[in-house]
Design a protein around this nucleic acid. Structure first.
Lengths: 156, 156
DNA sequence: CAGATATTGTTACATTAGTAAACAGTATTG
DNA sequence: CAATACTGTTTACTAATGTAACAATATCTG
């Protein structure tokens, strides 16, 4: 019943087979590397994802961004404040709706985004080098398939 | 619009193709579901992983557990305190080393672990139902392969 | 053997992320 | 018009995570 094995590396432990545990550990690896390679200079993972979104589809409202990223509107405020203070993005009035703010990346925002994106691609490419190309594609595909199956209800 | 760096081929939608982003979103889904299905009554994901480890290999030291789980020793103290206060685990003196504490799950600890593990398996099975069995296995395999390629250096 | 160096569990502190609730202003709906 | 829902925002609260130091103990090195 009770295993009294000497301390060896657990390869077949219960948690090692759990999806949640593996996702978290894998994410930690990527996040730590991102911090080492990219963030020290500029943007947190969150801020980068926000900037990416408004670079790609200019004019999105704050609520729309929060919804797409799965974060709270309240959490977005500080991020936008920061991006705006650094001259990377702007809030602009929305013609039809006086509540909403449309988000636009500035010239500097576009530049920085392109620059960070290149670094992110490099760092992910390096991390993924441990998998062969087919496996890399499959991992991404499976993660996105998993996500899309579950982000329907809560996403909006 | 002008890129500061030589333009790479931009694949599809930017963040959706990033490993880190997909890992985080996927983990969020699993964690939120865990909280709904399991935690509300008892153990946080972390505490559960700790309990699992000391149930599986009794006598592990706190440092060993922290190392294996990739968390800080300092973060473990409160978790062990809590497990001990609930009568789920114990700290015991280690014969050879008067600094270390050996961790053992109590009878109640074993029971609760088995009970939670069953619930965790059920909740993961439900979440993974969106993938076919081959895909489920592949996702787990790829995540573990990715982890094992990167947890060598920092693991100790 | 002694002194330097490492390791163990622990505490304290800072930083952050994420949650939750409420707010005024505005839009929408019936 | 009244009720309801949505926008951005503020505030507070919890929980997580990282950092640094500490005393006690162990190990290593010369």
């Amino acid at each position: 019943m009770v295993k009294a094995h000497p301390a060896l590396l657990v390869e077949e432990s219960d948690i090692e087979c759990l999806l949640g545990y593996n996702l978290k550990r894998a994410y930690m690896i990527v996040r730590d590397d991102y911090r080492k390679q990219v963030e020290q200079s500029v943007l947190s993972p969150r801020a980068f994802s926000v900037l990416t979104l408004i670079v790609e589809s200019s004019g999105l409202t704050q609520s729309a961004v929060a919804r797409q990223l799965g974060i709270e509107r309240s959490g977005l405020v500080a991020i936008i404040d920061d991006l705006e203070a650094r001259g990377l993005a702007e809030r602009r009035a929305v013609p039809g709706d006086r509540r909403a703010q449309a988000l636009m990346a500035t010239e500097a925002g576009h530049d920085l985004h392109a620059q960070i994106l290149a670094r992110v691609h490099a760092h992910e490419r390096a991390l993924l080098a441990s998998l062969d190309p087919a496996e890399q594609a499959q991992l991404l595909t499976l993660l996105r398939k998993f996500r899309s199956a579950h982000e329907r209800d809560e996403a909006q």
